[in-house]
Amino acid sequence: MTVRTPGTETGAGTATEPEADERGPDPVKVRLDVNGAQRHVDIEPRVSLLGALRDELQLTGAKRGCDQGTCGACTVWVDGRRVLACLTLAITCEGAEITTVEGLATPDGTGDGRLHPMQEEFIRHDAFQCGYCTPGQIMSAVGCVREGHAGDDGEIKEWMSGNICRCAAYPNIRAAIRAARDRV
């Protein structure tokens, strides 16, 4: 059994503007700007952004926890705002900048071992256990700080409540956000 290597698209800029015409329901070519790279996927219009990231681009940092908008594990940024990838259709994201946890530390998503301050503090403060909600927590946490809602613990509690951690690492998540907020 061979492991499929996700293909990185080249030739950005050659793609045409999306047409105004109806597309689908069969698979259509959708252009997504993910972590600074232009990626092309052939998907049906019903495919969610979460499905496109995970199944087409092998970016499995965004997690499927409920597929109903109730857990926050799929949190990514679209045009810099934290949103739920499970309730976003991928095709609606054409022309928007998508950022996933894979692209958080280094904009091109290559990782190279470097970490974003929020990632470092999540490790230092043991802000996770099983790790499944963690990418969503981190993307949400950076959003929370940037939105100006990490002033005190009461604020962090409220503005981080869209991300469920069943291991209940919440006090440590707050500690990580407190520690990282001045470096975000």
């Binding site: 999306p18 105004a20 015409d21 109806e22 597309r23 689908g24 329901p25 069969d26 259509v28 049906e44 219009p45 019903r46 259709l89 095709i91 609606t92």
Partner: peptide, 30 residues
């Protein structure tokens, strides 16, 4: 279910969106 997609935009975007949904009982706004 399988769905098709139409993006409404541009100068006459509102009118074309209205027309697209009004004329087709199977279309909804998103």
């Amino acid at each position: 279910r399988p769905i098709s997609y139409l993006r409404a935009e541009g100068a006459d975007g509102i009118d074309s969106a209205l027309r697209a949904v009004t004329d087709d009982p199977g279309s909804d706004f998103l």
